[in-house]
Amino acid sequence: MTYPMDDVVASLNPVRDDDIPASDEAARTLLNAITTDTPPARRRRFRLAALAATAVAAATTTLIVLSGHDSGPLRSYANAAVQIDVTGKDAYEVEVKDAYADQREFREAFAKFGLDVRLSIVPVSPGEERRLIRIGPLHASDGDLPPGGVTGTSDTDLACPPDRGACPLRVRLGGPMFHLEGADVVLGRKARPGELYQDATPEPGDRPKSLHLTGRTVDQALADLDRRSLTWAFSLGQFKPDGSGGSWNAPANWRPAGDRRITGAWMRSSNSLGLLVTPQKGDPEPDPNN
């Protein structure tokens, strides 16, 4: 059975199958290739190649767009704890927004600029809040500042809102040490009740002078502190009139004989005092680990 379309196709092809010699296999193969549609497998390969070319073009476009956002060295960075701004060559202005933040947040911010800085915010005695307490090299073995290592380091008071538990802090840091040896920077904050002041160190005399404990016996001094509901801790050491000398902390709850004299007294927290006595034979020795 034939259809009109078969007749039309046949009329367009003057060469019929029985006109082709049976021995001419090459001609028959050529005719079959011409009159046969493109195989499905070939069409799938074509579609895959087209999709791959489209993906490559998209990836190339993305790379171009990303590279277009390169704006040069970082000039400012902030997280929830701190903001750092570059103010010049090896010069940075650091504003601490949260004095109680995790230390890792400060390290993260400095690392954004390629700086190795350990910033510590510690409780300090009244009147020393928001001050630069200490600065030194982070990795130097001798603990001394390298020549020209720090320049222009200063601190700046910021307005302290009355409803804030911790006032904001700002410090300006400068010097190549922040890129080389690294830096250990300590700033002061207001201490919570009972927190030990990190800037309180043994010295001769009373601090504040209103303590009136220097020169009294240990028994007299401790009786006075008991009446004030204050705790205490002893240090051993000796100082010369020019202030040179040294001291070390005695073990917790150690107390010397009651007739020995107090040579120095200082507030070590809001509710405790440090007391200094001159060392004698049999007293605790310095801890080699401290």
Rank of each mutant, 00 (worst) to 15 (best):
S120Y: 05
D102G: 09
S141N: 12
A58C: 05
R47C: 11
V124L: 00
S141C: 11
A49Y: 14
D98P: 04
A101M: 04
P126W: 02
L132G: 08
L138P: 07
R75I: 09
S125V: 01
S71R: 12
D70Y: 12
E108T: 05
I64A: 05
H139P: 03
D144A: 15
S141I: 13
Y92F: 14
I84A: 02
V86S: 12
G143E: 02
A55Q: 07
S71A: 14
L132V: 04
P147V: 06
S71T: 14
Q83A: 15
R75C: 04
R131N: 00
E105K: 09
V65K: 02
A55T: 06
P146H: 02
A78G: 13
E129C: 07
S141Q: 13
V65T: 05
V86K: 12
R104H: 12
H69R: 14
I64Q: 03
A53E: 04
L51A: 15
A59T: 05
A49L: 15
P73C: 05
G88Y: 10
E108S: 10
R104N: 11
G72K: 04
L115K: 02
L63Q: 10
S76V: 08
E95I: 13
R47N: 13
D116S: 10
I133N: 00
V56P: 02
A109D: 03
H139D: 13
G149Q: 04
L119G: 03
G114N: 00
L145A: 13
F110E: 00
S71M: 12
K112M: 08
P73K: 12
A59K: 03
K112Y: 02
H139K: 13
A81Y: 03
S141W: 10
V96I: 05
R47G: 14
Y92K: 03
D98M: 03
L74R: 11
A57T: 11
D85T: 13
P123A: 06
V86I: 13
A101G: 03
A91D: 10
A101P: 01
D116W: 10
L138W: 06
A109F: 01
A53I: 09
A49N: 15
P126S: 00
D85E: 15
R118S: 14
L138F: 08
L66Y: 10
L132N: 09
E95T: 14
L115I: 01
V65W: 06
R104D: 12
D70Q: 07
T61N: 09
T54L: 15
D102Q: 11
P73N: 06
L115A: 04
A81D: 07
H69M: 14
Y77T: 04
S76I: 05
L66H: 08
V56W: 07
S141G: 13
V150M: 08
F113I: 01
L119C: 01
G68I: 01
V122F: 07
T61R: 09
H69C: 09
L66G: 09
R118C: 10
R131P: 00
I121P: 00
T62L: 12
L138A: 13
L48K: 15
G72M: 02
G68P: 01
